[in-house]
Each structure stands twice: as structure tokens, then as C-alpha cells.
């Protein structure tokens, strides 16, 4: 039987090493295979908004760069008439049906974009600082807290950043073709918070500069 492979399977051990080497300040993992649907509808159409609310438990957010979450599913604001609806693995057809029903005969669209992006989860007390190394958006909690999202660049790669809780935990939605690059960049950006390199190779502290962590 065919087995599904997550795009960042090969990073699993380097990712899991981060928690201990950073003394618990950062945790890193991939959240693969989430259902992602691009939903376009008129936010002023109360019938569509109500229908989504009844079925999924959240009101489609109309404030730019905010997200609504209920029952483990989220709606991320992508534009004034566009959202990314995120659900668990295998929920593509369920969500498609719900959104089609909500639209009815009104103008809009539902597109399954699950294969477009994978999710890298970065959490812990140093997570915000790590992301700030390469992100032009101000991630300070006074401006960017739980329930905020932004489409922006992280280390020049286009991402959607979603802060999902106060840990803080961030979900980075990144195109699969950029996922390896972003994973390498994150591990590199985390070296200053890690007692040893996340891959587990010990590096003499002090004296010589650390060798590049970019290796396979």
C-alpha cells in the first residue's frame, strides 16, 4: 500500500533535537497534510457567513490579518473577500461540501489548495525572536498576538504566519517547494538559542566561530 510522505520527513530528527538543545525555549515540528481550502465569498452576504458559522463554529473574519478558530479548524483572512479555511488531515471533502453549501447559488469559489503548502510549527519562549530574524512584519505581542495572521516574507520565502496560542505557537504555511529551504533557515536562525547544534553534532563553545549548520 502506498504510504504518504510529508515533505519534511527527512528533518524529523533535527527538528526534535531543538527542544532539548534549546533548553525548552523552542520546539519545532512539521504539521503535514492539513486540509486547506481557498474560499472566496462576499463577506456582506449574511446568509453565507451564517451558514459557515453554523457548520464550522466561527464567523469569517473581516478584520485584515486576523484568524478565527473553532473545533480545531481555522479561517485565516487572506483578502477582503478571501479566506484560507484550514482543517485536519482528510477533511478536504467535508470542508468543500460545507463551503459549497454555504455559497449556494451566490458568486464565490472553493478551491482545494491542500497540496500547495505544508505547515511548520514553531513554538516556545524564543519562537518570536527566531522568526523576527527574517520577517519584516512586527511580531511584537502588542501588535501580533494569538489569533493574528499575516501573509509576508520569512527569509525571502512567501509564508502565511498564524499565531495559534500564547505559548506562543506559530504556524508557518509555506509552499512545499520552499519547505526544505525554510526548514534549513529556521535551524540556522535557532543556533544562537541552542547549546549545541540542533542536528546533535557538538560544537566547541567559545573560541572559533561555529561551522555552518547547513549540511544534509
Amino acid at each position: 500500500m502506498a504510504r504518504k510522505h510529508a515533505i519534511l520527513d527527512g528533518f524529523a530528527s533535527r527538528f526534535s533535537g531543538v527542544a532539548s538543545s534549546s533548553g525548552g525555549r523552542i520546539a519545532l515540528r512539521e504539521v503535514p497534510f492539513s486540509a486547506q481550502l481557498d474560499f472566496r465569498a462576499n463577506p456582506a452576504d449574511g446568509r453565507v457567513v451564517d451558514s459557515v458559522h453554523k457548520a464550522l463554529g466561527f464567523v469569517l473574519p473581516t478584520d485584515p490579518n486576523t484568524a478565527a478558530t473553532a473545533g480545531g479548524r481555522s479561517a485565516l483572512w487572506l483578502g477582503p473577500d478571501e479566506w484560507l479555511i484550514v482543517g485536519g488531515e482528510g477533511e478536504e471533502s467535508l470542508l468543500t461540501r460545507v463551503l459549497h453549501t454555504a455559497l449556494g447559488e451566490t458568486f464565490g469559489s472553493v478551491v482545494d489548495v491542500s497540496a500547495n503548502r505544508t505547515v511548520i510549527e514553531v513554538s516556545g519562549s524564543a519562537a518570536r525572536d527566531v522568526l523576527a530574524h527574517g520577517c519584516p512584519v512586527d511580531l511584537h505581542p502588542r501588535d501580533f498576538g494569538t489569533g493574528r495572521c499575516a501573509q509576508t516574507l520569512l527569509a525571502k520565502a512567501q509564508v502565511i504566519i498564524h499565531q495559534v496560542n500564547d505559548a506562543p505557537t506559530f504556524h508557518l504555511f509555506v509552499r512545499t517547494s520552499f519547505a526544505w529551504y525554510l526548514a534549513e533557515w529556521l535551524l540556522d536562525a535557532m543556533t544562537e538559542y541552542c547549546a549545541e547544534e540542533p542536528i546533535g553534532v557538538s560544537v566547541p563553545l567559545g573560541g572559533q566561530e561555529s561551522p555552518s549548520p547547513l549540511r544534509g
Binding site: 485584515p64 490579518n65 483578502g79 519584516p136 512584519v137 499575516a150 501573509q151 516574507l153
Partner: peptide, 11 residues
């Protein structure tokens, strides 16, 4: 007009 102040590299 939607997202507020952002860096030029995003545009």
C-alpha cells in the same frame, strides 16, 4: 489600505 504599513519588498 488593507494590511497597514509593510516593507517595500512585499510590493
Amino acid at each position: 489600505p488593507w494590511c497597514g504599513q509593510r516593507d517595500e519588498i512585499e510590493f
